[in-house]
């Protein structure tokens, strides 16, 4: 069966820690980092290696800081 593997790259310095991506991810792949970025926001990071590349986080991210990759493997 074809399987879709995904990954996300987050521009952490531009993330505002709004958490919308975390809530929108069906895989619970994302969480806020304990650290803060230069703006003072806790930024979103990947905490599980289970992204499917569904694109939900990128759709909801107001600041367009998430880049999504998806690979379909047989």
């Amino acid at each position: 069966m074809a399987k879709s593997l995904g990954d996300v790259v987050i521009d952490i310095e531009k993330c505002k820690g709004c958490e919308l991506c975390i809530d929108a991810c069906p895989q619970e792949t994302l969480a806020l980092a304990p650290r803060i970025n230069q703006k003072g926001y806790h930024y979103a990071i990947k905490v599980q290696d289970n992204c499917t590349g569904c694109n939900n986080c990128a759709l909801i991210c107001p600041d367009a800081v998430i880049t999504v990759y998806r690979k379909i493997v047989k």
Binding site: D7, V9, K46, D49, G53, Y69, K71
Partner: peptide, 20 residues
Amino acid sequence: VQEIPINPEIVQDENLLYCK
């Protein structure tokens, strides 16, 4: 919270699905 590094096998131009 443990940050997971990007997977270089997936993060390739040909797999790009969304960017700004």
